[in-house]
Design a protein around this nucleic acid. Structure first.
Lengths: 136, 136
DNA sequence: ATAGAAGTTCGAGTTGACTCGAAGTCAAGC
DNA sequence: GCTTGACTTCGAGTCAACTCGAACTTCTAT
């Protein structure tokens, strides 16, 4: 179990931002200490890996609103393994959302390839000009 | 030569945004009508292709500030072919910036691959659960 | 028991990237 | 000649995504 600061250091997301993500429903509320330091967030390894996944989507340019669709409906993906006594309908719903995200990732990759192609064309154009110059 | 509205339609960027990009130095000022409708922007094909390139970088998640480094220093890349009597130093500078951008594009692609891998793992995990369920 | 560090909530402020409206110019068509 | 419509500049407004400070609690070490 990790504190918010530890999660912050491990993921590179500030504690401010982690609480903000929780507030707007992008991250599920983690377990809290029920003992002495009441109310303090305690993150599990599952929480950590979920946060990393979300962060990955974020860093590849997905909007928070779109990411939110993942966490919605009672934080479906909070735990990946347990509690799968729920109907296959829920599972299919999760998969549909994932498919949507994968589709988006593919489009991003295509876009990236296109732009990279243009950049490389420009680069080789400059390189050839430089070559010509050197030959004079 | 195109009007700002035509450029807007061809690129999907609003006229407001085009002027904004020009204002903050991301796009070079295009030629203007010097005849009657004084001051009206007239974009060339070169302008168009440059705008498309910039727009591509934008859509792949690059910040305007980082894109700006490309246009800086007197709108170096405004015209790709002409006026190359300038020193090879300038050329090398352009290439260095391009290299930087290509490097960034590569990193984005790696990131995208990573996240896609995680998403696909999740997906196949769900798929297998669904399979198990069906077999009961 | 008291100071300090780290956590809590809440609401306000900042930044980046647009987005728009107002006021004005200009050329063309009725 | 007068309206219409696309352009111009400029400054202000909006929205997403943080980012922070204030006021408070609560454990830990002196």
């Amino acid at each position: 179990m990790y504190s918010i600061q530890q999660i912050s250091q491990m993921t590179g997301i500030t504690a401010y931002t982690l609480r903000y993500y929780e507030k707007i429903g992008i991250l599920p509320s983690p377990a809290r200490h029920d003992g002495k330091p009441n109310g303090i967030r305690r993150y599990s390894d599952q929480d950590l890996s979920y946060i990393r996944f979300i962060h990955g989507l974020k860093q590849t340019g997905m909007k928070l609103e779109d990411i939110a669709s993942f966490t919605e409906d009672g934080c479906l993906l909070k735990q990946d393994g347990e509690g799968i006594e729920d109907l296959p309908g829920t599972l299919q719903k999760r998969m549909a959302i994932l498919d949507h995200h994968i589709e988006w990732l593919n489009q991003q990759m295509e876009q990236l390839e296109r732009v990279k192609g243009i950049a490389e064309d420009k680069r080789s154009f400059y390189a050839s000009l430089l070559q010509d110059h050197a030959e004079v």
